[in-house]
Amino acid sequence: MTSTAGIAPANPHDSAAPAPRGRKLTGYWLILPAALWLGVFFVIPFYSLVSSSLFDPNGSVLTGYNMTWHFANYVDAINDYKGQLWRSIWYAGLATLACLVIGYVLAYAIAFKAGRWKNLMLVLVIAPFFTSFLLRTLSWKLILADDGWVVGFAQTIHLTNLLNFIGLTGTDDRLLATPFAVIAGLTYNFLPFMVLPLYASLEKIDVRLIEASSDLYASPMRGFFKVTFPLSLPGVVAGTLLTFIPAAGDYINATLLGNTNTKMVGNVIQSLFTTQGDYAAAGALSVTLMAIIVGLVLIYVRTSGTEDLV
């Protein structure tokens, strides 16, 4: 840090309150554990990933891969898998939206209407975590089985026709092995990640603010959109991010609940890494996915303007 001393003439504000040197250094020492943590669990793996994305694609697991700054891997990955990339964003987006709607109602009910059942309901929200992700997803195969009552009921009320009309299922009058099942599985699996932050921010809202809005001529509906919802925005943003990011990279739901044409980018990456041993393409695709997600998140956080909230 000594080099900073020589840089730039101090302006009046700067020199007005010179901080003692020792204290400045203390600050850097204090971030050391966090920096180490980041280094070990983020920076190094990330470098490894980036470097594999720039491997010479002619290498192989057996003959070895060499880092050759082969940026064309990205062009190839995007060209070859833009369909799956787009599908992942689309499915994750729909699942996030579904999570938001369902999760909001749930979190709202828990925060404001549950009374003494509040804690029990929160436990029930987290309860699915006590079984494995895989088992939970597999159990949906039984629930949505082609000859099961859920599908039978959906057929009776023509839900399957509706979903087919929207394009979420095929013409075969079933729910399993359709885009609908994949999105539903994502929604189900990531719902708690939406509910918990939403609950946390709703629960913090002073009910007197809601009373104030109703005192100021806002009907319950308008009061919700003008007061409750804006105040819960930090929860909405946190929840949607926590849902969207893992959903976009998920491959379990597409594997178990989808069909051959609903594969997401996670499936591709998994297949490239394990079955095909194509580290270069797998790395490039992973980094691309990461970049897309980071880009979307930045735009999202900017436009939602949450940093403006108290």
Binding site: Y47, S51, L54, F55, V61, L62, T63, G64, Y65
Partner: peptide, 13 residues
């Protein structure tokens, strides 16, 4: 530097 020497995979034959 890391990219150069850190994460290449060796020939395994």
């Amino acid at each position: 530097a890391a990219l150069k020497w850190g994460f290449n995979t060796p020939d395994r034959k």
